[in-house]
Design a protein around this nucleic acid. Structure first.
Lengths: 258, 258
DNA sequence: GGGATTTATTGGTATTACCATTCCCCTCAG
DNA sequence: CTGAGGGGAATGGTAATACCAATAAATCCC
């Protein structure tokens, strides 16, 4: 575990909200708050922290959107266990603000996933490999249903990540996958499922053989193929978006200055 | 650019806050809001959206913490341009909640950065390579100042990322670097700077020679070394944390249930 | 014309009130 | 004794209001 918590000093000119978030971080790090545990009611928390409920709610809302906590009316606030979705919202904004294209996301996959496949071949347990096979079978069973087919395609890759045994990359790229989901689904409608399946089978077999080099090559082969297919789909997509944008080009929310 | 915006339907049982965030996402995607641009005042925005200022502020706070916007009292609210820090807070919580260790973060670096070094050797422009060299020189100049030395160490790696030309991985791992920053600084105090410098020089020279394989090997060499050094430092760190935790083990914020 | 001062605007915080949902406990019928 | 039902309390969600502090623009004064 790391030392992420910032000392309570130096927190002078910051928002109450920011301070509160830091406090929660501290409480989680200390173990005072346990995953799955229930937090005190907002009114109590606000009082014990010496802040208004509105300010507290701002902090809690941030944590909720980030997936750290869950709130349910009439019930209470709970600290989430795993936080898979924690990077999703931020990543979406990142893609929007920095104008990151599908192509660039695929390039990122191409950089990382081959190495992960190699690692999966090296360190994956038999159970891990079985899980990869399971998703391969699920893909075969869902040839007709594009959405389901793509879902299991991505789960196949997630299984490879898991076999590689590094949660950091796994979590990061699950977000990348999610961002690409729709586009991949679009693409899959113009590609023969058997084509995709063949490439995945090769990856699986290479990992099963514990052949690192071939695993890396096969994953590269698949992603290069997917990248090129996606690029073409993305072009159409962007034409589509362009047309839609023309209509809503009345700037009505921004304002110059005063 | 991707299609991340969710259709306005299906937004029924969600928070006003969540809806508002979706609206902002939409406005950014449309281009109605431009990076660097100024948003209307909170009071105006709230009225035009038909929500209370409190609810609007919750949404804005989320966006601010994520680094999407910046707010300044007496001035106004602005849409940020690049959003480098957007993943930082979420990542810190992720590390806390999932209990990700420094070792695991280093493993992630070890998986990804060698390939990025190879890519930098392949595609980096001469300017990119010069930038890497600049950070190497900065490291040499800061041998005595551990904090500065580590800062330029990480900037060296960032420069390699930039040379590799993929912003996705670059953004992701800048967060990983930041999380490791303190620990690396601790470690650097017990390591001869010249040792670290030698390893970095080899990486730089390999990239400069445009030798992909050697770049990959040299980066691996460096990170394996760093990982092992860090693991030892992390042990001490965890002992330290353990001692601190014992004192603050009075659970005062959680409560069973009612 | 330039620096100091005033003034209006803006985000930050707190308080209060009310609503809808949920849970818990108690009652009552079987 | 058990289970179904109801009512009340607690909880998060939203809104409205008031005031503060910081900022920037306009104004004033020298």
């Amino acid at each position: 575990m790391l030392a992420l918590v910032v000392p309570i000093a130096k927190r002078r000119k910051e928002d109450v909200t920011v301070k509160l978030i830091a406090v929660f971080k501290q409480l989680i790090a200390e173990g005072t708050l346990e995953p799955g545990g229930r937090l005190p009611a907002e009114r109590e928390l606000a009082e014990s922290f010496g802040v208004s409920r509105s300010s507290l709610r701002q902090a809690l809302k941030v944590l909720e959107i980030m997936g750290v906590i869950s709130q349910r009316v009439g019930d209470g606030t709970y600290l989430n266990k795993g936080a898979d979705a924690i990077l999703r919202e931020p990543m979406e904004f990142l893609i929007l603000l920095d104008g990151i294209s599908a192509h660039e996301l695929m390039e990122a996959r191409l950089l990382v996933e081959p190495e992960l496949a190699a690692r999966a071949a090296l360190r994956g347990s038999d159970e891990d490999v079985a899980e990869i096979y399971k998703e391969l079978r699920a893909m075969e069973a869902a040839k007709e249903d594009h959405a389901k087919f793509v879902a299991h395609d991505l789960l196949f890759h997630q299984a490879v990540f898991h076999a590689a045994g590094n949660r950091v990359t796994s979590l990061m790229f699950s977000v990348v996958h999610k961002s690409l989901d729709k586009l991949i689904t679009m693409t899959s409608q113009v590609v023969e499922p058997e084509h995709t399946l063949t490439l995945h089978r090769r990856i699986y077999q290479a990992i099963r053989k514990r052949d690192q080099d071939e695993s890396r090559r096969r994953m590269t082969e698949h992603l290069v193929d997917a990248r090129d297919l996606l690029s073409r789909a993305a072009e159409k997509q962007s034409h589509f978006q362009m047309a839609a944008r023309i209509q809503s080009l009345k700037k009505k929310e921004t304002r110059p200055s005063r």
